[in-house]
């Protein structure tokens, strides 16, 4: 049943049922009042508005991870840079990490503000064909904390999709916080109508991280979000002096490679640990143009190519299901 929210209590009758909010299972559910009032029967009109608004966006890609700090934002930023190298393509990067927006810093846009235009908020441009949106652009200082509970975060995500002047895009990349909660449910809910190509899942090689990635994969399956593939980040470190490789985050259970085999998912590639990646991010520069011949940059290149191939070889779920 499509109207049972994934976070519903067991035996939820479904939000559009006549019993919504009235069964014993609804006791204590935070949505009980909304459900029994009948308001939940109507889907949020924003979903359709967003569908219309984003009809001119060809491909939508989510970047997800289970654990925090594994390199989602770094990957999202470099995916955006790499796609925007083709000047005939329009690329946008949306940061829905409402409480920890790191995209402005990584894209070299700290201190920028969004402008209001006739057709909505205009994003901040890094290059002519690379637009960025983040809550960071709405804050007055890097020390500003966004102390919001779920519903307010969800409202912000809705606004980012509906009220930003995205115009025509070839790629919209969405960077997310870690986990499987409000931000993830909301982005899937609001973007779902417009059609999402799929998710790229980032992990580090050790089991502590893979365990959380399996949960993330379970989430994708629950909400029917296709998985483009998995990227193993921070995969080995080559000592600059003796050239030996150290497994700083050891793949004790076979790393992303074995997990992908077991779950029958594509492994898009492995990106090694490279101190120059962190430095580029801190300086807001693209590692791909700073150190283009490094093995990490080569790894990024091949991963990006696979994502492009995936996008051209299939139609998005929105196109299909209509």
């Amino acid at each position: 049943m499509a109207d049972i929210p994934v976070d519903a209590p067991q035996h939820c009758p479904g939000t559009t049922s006549d019993q919504a909010g009235k069964t014993s299972a609804c006791q204590g559910c935070p949505n009980q009042n909304i459900c029994s009032s009948g308001a939940a029967k109507a889907p949020d009109p924003a979903i359709d508005e967003i569908k219309v608004k984003l009809a001119t966006v060809k491909h939508k890609i989510l970047v997800l991870s289970g654990k925090g700090g594994v390199g989602k934002s770094t990957f999202s930023a470099h995916l955006a840079h790499a796609l925007a190298r083709d000047e005939t393509k329009e690329v946008a990067l949306l940061d829905v990490d409402i409480c920890g927006p790191s995209i402005p810093k990584i894209m070299g846009l700290e201190g920028e503000q969004v402008h209001q235009s006739g057709s909505g908020w205009s994003p901040v441009y890094v290059e002519d064909n690379l637009a960025v949106m983040s809550i960071g652009f709405l804050l007055s200082s890097p020390d500003d904390a966004v102390i919001w509970r779920g519903p307010k975060k969800n409202g912000m995500i809705k606004q980012f999709l509906r009220d930003v002047d995205w115009s025509e895009l070839d790629f919209l990349i969405v960077d997310t916080p870690p986990g499987t909660s409000d931000e993830h449910l909301s982005i899937v809910q609001y973007l779902g109508g417009a059609g999402i190509d799929g998710a790229v899942i980032i992990t580090t090689p050790q089991e502590v991280s893979l365990q959380d990635v399996r949960k993330e994969i379970g989430f994708c399956q629950k909400v029917k979000l296709p998985i483009i593939g998995v990227v193993e980040n921070m995969s080995g470190f080559v000592c600059p002096r003796c050239k030996n490789t150290s497994q700083i985050f050891p793949p004790t259970t076979g790393g992303a490679e074995r997990m992908c085999e077991e779950l029958n998912l594509p492994l898009l590639g492995k990106v090694p640990l490279d101190p120059r990646i962190g430095r580029s991010c801190d300086e807001g520069k693209s590692f791909l143009s700073e150190v283009p011949d490094s093995s990490a940059a080569v790894a990024y290149g091949s991963i990006v190519q696979k994502i492009k191939d995936y996008c051209t070889s299939h139609t998005t779920s929105g196109e299909k299901s209509e």
């Binding site: 976070d7 779920g150 499987t180 909660s181 409000d182 399996r214 989430f219 629950k222």
Partner: peptide, 11 residues
């Protein structure tokens, strides 16, 4: 152990 906990804030 792999079960995802897909909960919004109130839960």
């Amino acid at each position: 152990p792999d079960e995802a906990v897909v909960w919004r804030g109130p839960k």
